[in-house]
Amino acid sequence: MIEVKNVNKSFDGKQVLFDISANLLEGHANLIIGQSGSGKTVLMKSVAGIYRIDSGEILYDGRNISQMKSNELNLLRREIGMLFQGSALFDSLTVKDNVMFPLRMFSNKSEEEMEERARFCLERVDLLRALDLYPSEISGGMQKRAAIARAIVLNPKYLFCDEPNSGLDPKTSLLIDRLILEITHEYNITTIINTHDMNSVMEIGENIVFISKGHKSWQGNNTEIYDTGNEDLENLIFASDLYKKIKKAHQMGI
């Protein structure tokens, strides 16, 4: 579990996060949602240790990352997998080499063992056929799946996903969402997903943290989200006519 306690963060004197506290649960998909510019990406990158926070605490199973030295932080980072918005695959390496990269850096396995592990992870995301292709030769959805395979190759305890559905069609988005959720449950990972895709919120939102103007405005799950009484959240989630109808149907018990 990751505990976020009273986190404040500012850039060049402009405060972006205000006293945020939240628990991100182990074995669950934890979603950070909010409008563009609300501070959700800053929160996720602060939790991931990419940004240093101004004050507060971020505890990874009791380990406070804001008090860690850089070598301790580097060791912790080996327990973290991250899926970036643009996949961030190394474009000079093939899909297989991308997945094998963390193993080559940090494991003492033989080349055969590493390849076996890479193949297993790529099979898990149904991407064995793209083994020897370069990132530029595969579709956006396949790139995301390759990035998921790379993120899980070292058996991470924590998985961060920055807008995993951005740029994908609804069907592929759903596949990626379900894949992330399956992997989260299968390996008991603490998964943190930064998104403003409402389909994802409804599909995999087991623990949702809503950020509004840098403040934590609401926390709950995808079944509680219909009756929050939070105006900002409702304006975000039920902005479209379709979701308004879904909410109405839900309230009528249909």
Binding site: L73, I80, Q85, D91, P102
Partner: peptide
């Protein structure tokens, strides 16, 4: 290009210098 496409962030988050 690696910086703007987050490839360097990916290395950092893996714990690679």
């Amino acid at each position: 290009t690696m910086r703007i496409t987050e490839q360097i962030d990916a290395l950092d988050i893996m714990g690679v210098n």
